[in-house]
Write a protein that binds this DNA or RNA. Structure first.
Lengths: 261, 261
DNA sequence: CCTTGAAGTTCCATTTAATGGAACTTGAGT
DNA sequence: ACTCAAGTTCCATTAAATGGAACTTCAAGG
């Protein structure tokens, strides 16, 4: 195996709960000989992928990675546009907003706007949640034809909560509704008491697709405010879809949404 | 040479003006044989360091790099604390604020808060400016003893503007003042008409040091507001210094600052 | 529809780096 | 000063990277 793949394995060791690694961490996590771990970390630091923390034996991601990672947003400028829309809505209503992408059957948040209210939804960028059991996930899955959704779940799935779809057929039913209404909604799925509204939009020239989501405690949002959020998300996403000439975009259908539960 | 160093060379090709690269870009930029360029980009994509844009031959940084790069802020939690302080001040007064780190004789901005005013200073994260000719740079350099500053500039430097120090002795004079007053100030240095105020703080346990900076058009800030910014920066940084037990921190000395030009 | 050339990929023998076991060094705690 | 865990260096072996050249792809122009 190439040293490149080992280096990437090291990068994957970092997470929101592990901000730095040592030689023994690598031996434990990756099962590599400590001679390799030692040299690999040093090589990665010498090349500028990692930094040593103070003058300890701990290594963390470098400034270079921070900068290159930051460019992802601009490279995938769709994310930046979506982030602007979500940021505006989040600022206005004070609830948490975020932008996510789909990787296979999982959803990863790429940008977040924390929200001002005392009771707020806290998202952690980089964490993965299942696509079928979240509003962001279903907003994105609704862009695929049914057979491609089925192909994503050859072995089906098991629902993590009562309000999530229980099987692929139920999921496809929910996706059909998302396509009609132009937005996806979740309630008590990932977190009890939390409600989320999402719309998805894509850029055909790059193949990128993102979900714009607003998330809030179910108890704090009145029907009128919910509709206002849906409208803002829908309009923002429609603006992006017009820019990118996204033909798969499902525009908002408020006539249906107003009768939604 | 290790493939690791080639891979890092590729990452360094990305910048705010180059969001994606092709095989020929690498041949031109790095002077490598195109066989290598082709395999290297493919290997980096297969390992998850890069993504292909749509199904074109263009490569951009991956989501993985975005996530790992994002962790830098938390790993170096000093940055996060400094960012919170600068964000508060920036929100309050509406001028651009940012947090920077020093790499040798250069300063790199790591986080930025754009500011609301029509006439605002626009900072670009990741761009490098000379340390001696900026308020952030001098705030950070003032944390070093004079001999270490001299060691950074064995060949001296040439001043890029009239208000920047012209030689190392002049720089040391400015640094002495920064240590006395507890903040650094610049005027018309990097950009004409722009004034900036900076303080620096460090974390002895990690060895990290950051500068907190507020930047604004010289014409728009009255003496009273300038003092208010200095006070906010100084208090915020003092709070961080207390948390990290930063012994090199230079506290604000308003008695001197009030008589400053 | 065929030609052309730029861009990218694959092939191959050669060169170079990565590997893992073991011996060695370092450093914190007793 | 001793001990043990953590980290580093050494070495022959094994595996991967290299770069030149041949090959493929693709879009534009005749």
């Amino acid at each position: 195996m190439s040293i490149l793949s080992s280096a990437v394995d090291v990068l994957r060791c970092f997470s929101s709960t592990r901000h730095d690694v040592t030689v023994t961490d690598l031996v434990t996590l990756l099962g590599m000989p400590k001679s390799n771990a030692s040299r690999l970390l040093r090589a990665m630091r010498d090349e500028g992928l990692l930094e040593t923390v103070g003058d300890s034996k701990r290594y963390r991601p470098s400034l270079l990675l921070n900068q290159v990672g930051h460019l992802y947003r601009f490279a995938a400028s769709l994310i930046d546009r979506a982030d602007a829309v979500v940021g505006n809505i989040s600022d206005r209503i004070g609830h948490t907003g975020y932008v996510s992408v789909r990787r296979g059957t999982e959803i990863v948040a790429v940008t977040a706007h924390p929200g001002r209210h005392a009771l707020r939804v806290v998202t952690s960028i980089g964490d993965r949640i299942p696509a079928f059991a979240s509003s962001t996930g279903r907003a994105l899955l609704a862009r695929l034809p049914d057979d491609e959704v089925r192909a994503l779940y050859p072995a089906g799935f098991s629902a993590p909560s009562e309000t999530a779809p229980r099987n692929v057929d139920e999921l496809l039913g929910r996706l059909a509704r998302v396509r009609d209404e132009g937005f996806a909604e979740s309630r008590d799925e990932a977190v009890r008491g939390v409600r989320a509204l999402s719309v998805a939009v894509g850029d055909p020239t790059t193949g990128d697709e993102v979900a714009l989501c607003l998330s809030f405690p179910a108890a704090t949002v009145e029907p009128a405010e919910r509709l206002s959020i849906i409208r803002s998300l829908g309009e923002g996403a429609a603006g992006i879809a017009a820019l990118t000439q996204d033909k798969r975009f499902h525009p908002l259908n408020l006539a249906i949404a107003e009768t939604a539960p």
